[in-house]
Design a protein around this nucleic acid. Structure first.
Lengths: 148, 148
DNA sequence: TTGTAATTGAGAGGCAATTGCAATTATATC
DNA sequence: GATATAATTGCAATTGCCTCTCAATTACAA
């Protein structure tokens, strides 16, 4: 079974790049979290392991991880980019609760198909898509009037 | 027929805010464009009318226009937020060509329905959603291999 | 072991967006 | 109309995310 490490190493090798301890630390940090993350979360996590590892390295490593297909960018919120790892996970879309921040992941095969259909209609070659629904989760909309 | 001006004025009044010449100028600037825009485009446009109108005012006005339902934020691209006006337009989704920047708008009723279905399933009260597909438009994918 | 090209941390810098402040101005009330 | 007052403005400084530069370091191949 291919691990994220293997996959990343292969990708780097193919590109003539190096599999450095720093990059491995970042990768491990990301895959030890099991949820969406932003740069700062990773920085704090990784900083415990290696006090010298800088934010710059994280910013430089993330695009490589995206390119290698291990993580993807998700929604951009509050001025910050946000990512999630996709290795071993299949594609899905998101609902984000604008009150409590809860994230619900879902996948609807029919929607995926319809998207492809639409693309075909416009002669559009889709590479990636992102569907995000903002609103209130069950708990936050319960009973009350919402006051957006 | 209610104009954007009317709607904005009503909204401001309701909130106890003022319908200033600056706000009207920004509004006019936005509605004189018939496409997606970012803050700078509006600034340049509006600046011709009123040399003193500052970026700060635009940044302060946009959230009011969003709140009043006249415009919406769309995708966040190249580190900048992007908006479009929705007054008189119906909801639609986007395809963005990552080569030439072309934007294709589309609306698929079935996708909209399925989204609502999914929300219901999770007890989620949706307020707004955004579907963006990135890829290559007809012209940019034509013949060539794409090399993302 | 050695050469070399990639990588690193640190800090400077870029840029979108926000904010504090003193002056200005729209609106309600007289 | 005139007046009071609370919102609004432009400006400039600032914040915060992210990128870049550069000299020193390091992984990897020969």
């Amino acid at each position: 079974m291919l691990t994220p490490q293997d996959k990343f190493r292969d990708y780097l090798k193919e590109k003539g790049l190096k599999f450095t301890p720093e990059r491995e630390t970042v990768l491990r940090g990301i895959f030890s979290l099991h949820k969406h993350f932003d740069v700062d979360e990773i920085y704090l996590k990784v900083h415990k392991k290696d006090k010298r590892l800088s934010r710059a390295t994280i910013y430089r490593t993330l695009p490589l991880l995206v390119e290698s297909g291990l993580i993807v960018e998700t929604f951009h919120c509050l001025g910050k980019g946000s990512y999630e790892h996709v290795f071993g996970h299949s594609h899905h879309d998101h609902m984000v609760c604008i009150k409590c921040g809860k994230i619900i992941e879902f996948r609807n095969e029919k929607i995926e198909e319809l998207q492809e259909e639409v693309c075909k209609k416009y002669g559009f070659k889709s590479i990636e898509h992102r569907l995000g629904i903002k609103g209130y989760c069950r708990k936050c909309s319960g009973g009350r009037k919402h006051n957006l």
